[in-house]
């Protein structure tokens, strides 16, 4: 009888094995490498905290992190706003073809980043790009505009692409959250004379707070690791003027283009710390105002 109790461990063993090999080991190895200087070929040289000293004064690290946060904010705020709006429309009204719209909004999420990069290149890159052609032909612009020479435009475009790719996903999750809210609460509020806006603010939002926390934290983690779209959009160095150089691109370039593996690991550790701090911060911030989890 006693043996039986151990069977459970065998069933969960595969997960932990895979996690140990593909999850835990790389994390520990990253911490390990971050105190070495290594180009991948020559023997590793232990240099203590030199990589971290460099990290603290590395203007490109701060620039990349700033870019990443900026791109994330300009993508996340509109994303949540759009998701809440669409979810309200779909949840509180009977819309014909709702499932179709939901699927259509979700669709951009399925396109690979490389295709998205190419698509927006065709639209904006060069004097003869589709958008320039339309703007010049219709007389809105006299001269073609060099879109990808403008840091503000390019950075905004990345935010827009991220929004466009992810707002459908966010909408689906928020809608799932909203459908769990008990209808009788709304009915009670209505009969007490609450407006739609009041029910939304006082009932819907507090009750889907766990969903919003989940979305915020996963979005921070994903957003801080943003790589594919900015890397495919221009020259993978974050041009123009490094305006779309994200932290992960910087890690990639340090590690896999310049072969400073040690320093790339140190930057990774830095990014890890930033994500951890932001996650805790947002978790706290969301919890403070709510009452669901408070004792």
């Amino acid at each position: 009888m006693k043996n039986r109790q151990h069977y459970g461990y065998f069933f969960i063993l595969p997960y932990f094995l895979i996690f140990a090999v593909f999850g835990l080991f790389p994390i520990l190895y990253t911490f390990f490498l971050s105190v070495y200087k290594w180009d991948g070929m020559m023997p590793k040289v232990f240099i203590g905290f030199d990589n971290f000293k460099r990290l603290l004064t590395d203007k490109y690290f701060y620039l990349a992190t700033g870019n990443t946060i900026k791109i994330w904010l300009f993508n996340f705020i509109p994303q949540i706003a759009a998701a809440l709006l669409l979810s309200c429309i779909f949840t509180f009204n009977r819309i014909r073809g709702m499932k179709f719209f939901r699927a259509a909004y979700y669709l951009p999420n399925l396109i690979t980043a490389a295709s998205v990069g190419l698509l927006f290149n065709l639209l904006f890159n060069g004097d003869k790009s589709a958008v320039n052609y339309i703007l010049v032909q219709s007389g809105i612009l006299k001269e073609p505009f060099a879109f990808f020479s403008s840091p503000e435009f390019t950075s905004g475009l990345v935010s827009y692409i991220q929004w466009w790719m992810w707002f459908g996903y966010t909408t689906v999750i928020v809608m799932a959250g909203m459908t769990t809210v008990d209808n009788s609460l709304y009915e009670a509020a209505m009969s007490d004379g609450a407006t739609k806006m009041q029910t939304f603010r006082k009932i819907t939002v507090p009750l889907i707070k766990p969903t919003l926390i989940y979305l915020t934290i996963t979005s921070i983690i994903g957003g801080m690791q943003l790589f594919d779209v900015p890397a495919t959009l221009t020259n993978a160095n974050g041009d123009p003027q490094k305006s779309i150089l994200t932290t992960t691109m910087y890690i990639y370039n340090q590690g896999f283009k310049s072969y400073n593996y040690g320093y790339a690991c140190a930057v990774s550790v830095g990014l890890f710390a930033i994500i951890a701090v932001l996650s805790v911060f947002s978790f706290r911030a969301m919890r403070r105002r709510g009452d669901m989890y408070d004792e």
Binding site: T112, A113, A114, G117, L118, G222, Q225, F227, D228, A231, T232, T234, N235, A236, T248, Y252
Partner: peptide, 17 residues
């Protein structure tokens, strides 16, 4: 997202260098 990142990394660079 992480997986997409890995898969596109190669394509990304070869597309643009």
């Amino acid at each position: 997202k992480a997986l997409a990142l890995l898969l596109t990394a190669a394509m990304a660079v070869s597309l643009l260098t």
